[in-house]
Amino acid sequence: MTLTQPAAGIPVRTATARTVLMCRPEHFTVSYRINPWMHPEAPTDTSLALRQWEVLYRTYLDLGFDVHLVDPIAGLPDMVYAANGGYVLDGVAYGARFQFDERGPEGPAYMDWFRADGFEVREPVSTNEGEGDFLLVGETIYAGTGFRSDAASHDELRRIYGREVVTLKLVDPSFYHLDTAFAVLDSRGGPDSVAYLPKAFDDASRAILEERFPQAIHVNDEDAAVLGLNSFSDGRNVVIAARAVDFERQLRERGFTPIGVDLSELLLGGGGVKCCTLELRR
Score class of each variant (00 low, 15 high):
Ala7Val: 00
Gly9Gln: 04
Arg13Gln: 04
Ala15Phe: 07
Thr16Asp: 01
Arg18Asp: 00
Thr19Gly: 04
Thr19Met: 03
Met22Glu: 12
Cys23Phe: 13
Cys23Arg: 07
Glu26Ile: 14
His27Arg: 11
Phe28Ala: 05
Ser31Met: 02
Ile34Phe: 08
Trp37Met: 04
Glu41Ala: 13
Ala42Thr: 11
Thr44His: 09
Thr44Asn: 05
Thr44Met: 04
Thr44Lys: 06
Thr46Arg: 14
Thr46Gln: 15
Arg51Met: 06
Gln52Glu: 12
Tyr57Gly: 09
Arg58Cys: 05
Arg58Trp: 00
Gly64Tyr: 00
His68Arg: 15
Asp71Arg: 15
Ile73Trp: 11
Ile73Lys: 15
Pro77Thr: 15
Asp78Met: 01
Asp78Ser: 03
Asp78Glu: 04
Met79Asn: 02
Tyr81Trp: 11
Tyr81Met: 03
Asn84His: 03
Tyr87Pro: 00
Leu89Tyr: 13
Gly95Pro: 08
Arg97Phe: 02
Phe98Lys: 02
Glu102Ala: 14
Glu102Arg: 06
Pro105Thr: 08
Glu106Thr: 14
Glu106Leu: 10
Pro108Trp: 04
Pro108Glu: 01
Tyr110Trp: 10
Met111Ala: 11
Asp112His: 07
Asp112Gly: 01
Arg115Leu: 05
Arg115Trp: 07
Phe119Gly: 00
Glu120Gln: 14
Arg122Gly: 09
Pro124Ser: 06
Pro124Gln: 02
Val125Gly: 12
Ser126Ile: 01
Asn128Trp: 00
Glu129Lys: 01
Glu129His: 03
Gly132Trp: 08
Asp133Pro: 02
Phe134Tyr: 07
Gly138Phe: 07
Ala143Lys: 01
Arg148Asn: 12
Ser149Asn: 02
Asp150Thr: 08
Ala151Arg: 06
Ala151Lys: 04
Ala151Phe: 04
Ala152Glu: 05
Glu156Val: 08
Glu156Lys: 15
Glu156Asn: 14
Arg158Trp: 06
Ile160Asn: 08
Ile160Tyr: 11
Tyr161Trp: 13
Gly162Asn: 07
Leu168Asn: 02
Leu168His: 03
Leu170Cys: 05
Pro173Val: 15
Phe175Asp: 00
Leu178Met: 06
Leu178Ile: 09
Leu178Phe: 06
Asp179Phe: 13
Asp179Leu: 11
Val184Lys: 08
Leu185Phe: 12
Ser187Cys: 10
Arg188Phe: 09
Gly190Asn: 08
Pro191Arg: 15
Pro191Glu: 13
Asp192Leu: 13
Asp192Val: 14
Leu197Ala: 06
Pro198Glu: 03
Ala200Asn: 02
Asp203Cys: 10
Ala207Leu: 06
Leu209Ser: 04
Glu210Ala: 15
Phe213Val: 07
Pro214Val: 13
Val219Asp: 05
Asn220Gly: 14
Asp221Gly: 14
Asp223Thr: 14
Ala225Phe: 03
Gly228Val: 12
Ser231Arg: 05
Phe232Asn: 01
Gly235Ala: 01
Asn237Gln: 08
Val238His: 07
Ile240Asn: 10
Val245Met: 10
Asp246Gly: 10
Glu248Trp: 14
Arg252Thr: 14
Arg252Phe: 10
Ile259Trp: 11
Leu263Val: 10
Leu263Pro: 00
Glu265Tyr: 06
Glu265His: 08
Leu267Gly: 03
